[in-house]
Design a protein around this nucleic acid. Structure first.
Lengths: 343, 343
DNA sequence: GTTAACAACGAAAACGGTTTCGTGTTGATA
DNA sequence: TATCAACACGAAACCGTTTTCGTTGTTAAC
């Protein structure tokens, strides 16, 4: 078992100083050709690689970015994560992943852990509880310390920082409009109970589309389900008691569940009822019938978020003082038409 | 913008030495009550938290563990990841996640990046390419450096280290046996093309179960699909040309795809054909009909892997020299019966 | 009135690097 | 022969901690 070799050991072995070794390995021209070659050969032989921790301490830069997401067994979030990881990789950054589990407290704890030097910046989506409590002091604090932060998807206006979101309102509007243009008159909405900003925006888009096209908003056509827990009975009751010819769902899981219930009730999809869901994941593709859904392009989102973050991190050196400027990037969602709607 | 405060700054401000501050914050009884209180008050006021990087350097312990998985947008792997993260969290460890993307090279690069001090140990599942090439020198190297390693799911006998796997052979055997006992005679297997050890073991279990129950192995009943890329035509041809009354699939995606093709061919599930898949994810639950599948208990697996790793990490101090002993934990998979089989 | 013990604190080394700033040696130049 | 660059290298500071080992000043004991 050979522990990793250090500069000091190389120096001792070769009877030179630590500084000489360090310089030789960086091809400094201060060091003679002979010595440099000797040192480099020795280093290669022993697989010398500088210790990242030491470098981080010296450079005050870890080359790590922290990602905090509400859930990891979740198609959309992992998609974003992949985008982040891929981009980070190209820039030599590692990703430390934390899961808040939709809990405010875990979010705070995780942030505090990471903020003490472990990372150079954060990318995160707010937990449901955080959005409900409307408490963002932990975000303010890390911003105050000068640590870059990029919020994605689950964002809030109360924190001033870089953000990347999809056009939730517009895409829900477009989807609803499509249903209307398909001749649908009684369009239902299945959304979440808890206060998630994305769901709200989607609901807004839905409402506005109805209004703009002369359909009136029927509260009975809106079903609010708990975000995490399944409530099959509530959905069944909804379908049993309500008459509708189309359904817009704020995620694909709601949509597929709803389709099953509708089918069990003898409805034909899309002839009797059309379905559109958000999040174009594997579930949408494999559903029977395949679900028309709104692709959120999570990987792009992750890419953009990582890019924004790293740019901020690396400019921080140069500009330092100058007042930071923040932007919000909007990723355009696109409707992927499949079998659950008529076309 | 207040940058994080350091011991040195507190010391200067309070006109004491750095050592005094450090000790006071740890409630050392070397320091007087007065001084301690003063220092602690000041530290709290400025939200002092020790710098993790400095601690890591000093303790030669990062409290980070590296997780390398082939894919992140993948139900089973994220489930394991969640298990790892949850356990790590309880022990005060952070998780650095890298994705090998099924590529040997990326796996090597990622490992090298992390092995230079960033983490205290690895948890990983081998990439497909690594398994195909049978090249494990990178694993050997990090083991040789004394860094703990736990392999899960995609493991190999050629590397001696801790492992956690499911009983692939037995569970495939049991599933096949169940199909036989249900009266099925022509049981197909849909597995992967590339050489993944888990697929092979499952195939073995399938074959042995057939043999033990007096059914002969028909090569025409075995379909090998590319792991990542969809090959719908190949599957369709398979179903068109082959007569079968049951199908065992090595993952749920294969299974759901296959069900759709069978249904399109006018087959009734489970009356005409039964289906069983591996990986009991959301896809199995939402499929129509719901898919009977073999739960791999990924979260448990992650839990166990993390526990094994952290134990090894933390015992390393004490025992140091003593020859390490490695174990392989087996997580028992369980069959979840749903609508795609008769019961 | 010594001396020993103790309380309260500081100096310095160490973790593993990078980098600035000497310093001694050489060869060329005046 | 004295002077000066250039060359090749080392010493030391620094990043932010922890921890060992002094070093004081005070007090109790003899």
């Amino acid at each position: 078992m050979k522990k990793k070799i250090t500069l000091k050991q190389i120096a001792r072995e070769l009877e030179v100083s630590i500084s000489t070794v360090s310089k030789a390995l960086k091809n400094s021209k201060e060091i003679s050709r002979d010595t440099t070659e000797k040192i480099q050969a020795f280093a290669k032989l022993y697989h010398y690689k500088p210790n990242n921790i030491a470098l981080s301490l010296k450079n005050r830069r870890t080359k790590n970015i922290g990602v905090i997401i509400p859930d990891i067994v979740h198609h959309f979030f992992t998609t974003v994560f992949r985008g982040i990881e891929k981009y980070a990789d190209t820039r030599g950054y590692n990703v430390i992943a934390c899961v808040s589990d939709e809990s405010f407290e875990k979010e705070v704890i995780n942030m505090e852990m990471l903020a003490n030097g472990s990372i150079d910046g954060f990318i995160m989506a707010l937990s449901a509880e955080t959005q409900r409590k409307n408490d963002f002091h932990h975000l303010m604090e890390i911003l105050d310390q000068g640590m870059p932060l990029v919020l994605f998807d689950r964002v809030t206006d109360e924190v001033i920082c870089d953000k990347v979101v999809i056009n939730d309102f517009e895409s829900a509007y477009m989807a609803t409009k499509k249903l209307i243009e398909d001749g649908r008159k009684r369009i239902a909405l299945i959304t979440t109970e808890s206060y998630l900003n994305v769901s709200e925006k989607r609901a807004q888009g839905y409402c506005n589309a109805l209004k703009d096209h002369g359909l009136e908003l029927d509260k009975n056509l809106i079903l609010r389900l708990p975000y995490q827990f399944e409530d099959e009975k509530k959905s069944e009751a909804f379908f049993a008691s309500t008459n509708m010819d189309a359904v817009l769902c704020v995620n694909e899981i709601f949509a597929v569940r709803a389709m099953r219930i509708a089918q069990a009730n003898g409805k034909k999809i899309p002839e009797d009822i059309s379905f559109i869901g958000f999040t174009d994941g594997i579930i949408s593709k494999l559903a029977n019938p395949a679900l028309t859904s709104i692709a959120q392009h999570g990987e792009r989102m992750g890419n953009v978020a990582a890019k924004m973050l790293i740019e901020k991190i690396e400019q921080d050196d140069e500009i330092e003082q100058e007042e930071a400027t923040y932007k919000t990037e909007v990723i355009e969602a696109t409707l992927i038409e499949r079998e659950s709607t008529i076309n």
